[in-house]
Amino acid sequence: MPSRDRLRFRLNGQPVDVFCPDPRILLDLLREDLRLTGTKRGCDLGTCGCCTVLLDGRPALSCLTLARLVESREVTTIEGVTPPQGLSPVQRAFVEHGATQCGFCTPGFVVTATALLRANPHPSREEIERAIAGNLCRCTGYTKIIEAIAAVGGR
C-alpha cells in the first residue's frame, strides 16, 4: 500500500497498520474496515455520544475524529475496555443496576464512565452528571446509569 494512505496506531493494545485515505472518519474505520461494531453510530455529528472511544485514555467522539490523526496514538474501544473473561466493574454495575435498556447508547456510556472512574475513582453525583452529559440515553432517564457509576465509585 502506498505509504501516503497507510495508517499505523495502537488499537486496544495491539498495533494496527491499515489503509486509510485522508477523509476517513475514525468511526467508519473502526466499524467498517476493522469490523469493531461495538462502537455505535447514533448521529454521526457529535450530538449523541454513542460512538465514544478512548484516545490516549481520554474519551473522544470517534464520529468527529479524522482517522489519520490517531497516527501513533492509542485508541481503545468498548472491545478494549472489556476483559477477556467476564465483565469490567463498570460493565457489571451497568447490568446489575439496570443501566442498560435498549443498549445502543451503552458502549458509549461504559467508555465514558470507565474514563471518568480512572481519572476520578469516587465521583460525586454532580461530577457523574457532568461527565456523562455528552452521552444521550433515550431509555433510562439516566437515573440507573448514574446509580451504576456511583456504585462502582463507592458512593
Binding site: G49, T52, L55, R58, A60, L61, L64, R130, A133, G134
Partner: peptide, 12 residues
C-alpha cells in the same frame, strides 16, 4: 469553558 457543548466536545 465548562459550559461549552459537552465533555466529549471539550475533550477535542
Amino acid at each position: 469553558v465548562g459550559e461549552v457543548a459537552t465533555p466529549l466536545v471539550r475533550a477535542s
